[in-house]
Simulated scan of single mutants.
Amino acid sequence: MAREPNEQLRQLHQEAKWTLGQFANAVNRVAIEAMSDQRVDKSNAHKWLSGHTPREVVRPLILEALSRRLGRPITHADAGFPSPPDQDTTTQGTFDSLLDLGRLTMERRGMLSLGLFSVALSVPDWEDVVGRLSAVTTGKTGRIGMHEVELSTP
């Protein structure tokens, strides 16, 4: 019976741009920091991506390594792992829901700012918006101090 690959974990692994060895090393670093005696190698990482479920004690280490690399919390569900048996499913469901809500909020913020600049660009005589947008994206914004304010007052 062939196992189905863990597509969720595979996608996270690709997003992290790790080799199998780098993945295993990252998990081992987290294990050392957590004072755990768990050690993995690239063959373990290959097995996880191929559909083998990691041992229960290793899963939090994998999630932490991925979270650090990707700069966001990664849950059991995100990685295609079963929920931990010792965790209340209601609490885990609430936690996952809050993380999903945070992700959606961040996506909406990006879309709103993009929409604002798109609308501003379509309004006539708003050329300065284009200049402001390019200044913000390139990091070339200027500061106006009291000297400039005093010069402009009559």
Results as ranks from 00 to 15, higher is better:
2 A>W: 10
3 R>I: 07
5 P>C: 11
5 P>F: 11
5 P>Q: 07
6 N>W: 10
9 L>A: 02
10 R>I: 09
11 Q>C: 12
12 L>Q: 01
16 A>C: 05
18 W>T: 00
19 T>W: 04
20 L>E: 02
23 F>H: 05
26 A>N: 02
28 N>P: 07
32 I>Q: 08
33 E>H: 08
35 M>P: 05
36 S>V: 05
38 Q>C: 12
38 Q>W: 13
39 R>H: 04
40 V>I: 06
41 D>P: 04
42 K>E: 12
43 S>H: 05
43 S>Y: 07
44 N>T: 06
46 H>P: 03
47 K>Q: 11
52 H>M: 11
53 T>G: 04
62 I>P: 05
62 I>M: 05
64 E>H: 01
64 E>K: 08
68 R>Q: 02
68 R>D: 04
71 G>Y: 02
71 G>D: 03
72 R>K: 06
72 R>C: 03
73 P>H: 00
81 F>N: 03
85 P>Q: 07
85 P>T: 10
87 Q>A: 15
88 D>Y: 06
89 T>S: 14
89 T>I: 15
89 T>K: 13
91 T>G: 00
93 G>N: 00
94 T>I: 14
96 D>G: 05
97 S>F: 13
99 L>W: 06
99 L>I: 15
101 L>C: 12
103 R>E: 03
106 M>S: 14
110 G>R: 09
110 G>C: 08
113 S>P: 00
114 L>R: 15
115 G>H: 05
115 G>N: 07
116 L>I: 15
116 L>F: 13
119 V>D: 02
119 V>F: 02
121 L>Y: 00
121 L>G: 11
122 S>E: 12
124 P>Q: 06
126 W>P: 01
126 W>F: 12
126 W>M: 14
126 W>I: 07
133 L>V: 13
136 V>T: 11
137 T>C: 09
141 T>R: 08
145 G>A: 05
147 H>M: 09
149 V>E: 07
150 E>Y: 07
150 E>I: 14
153 T>M: 12
153 T>F: 09
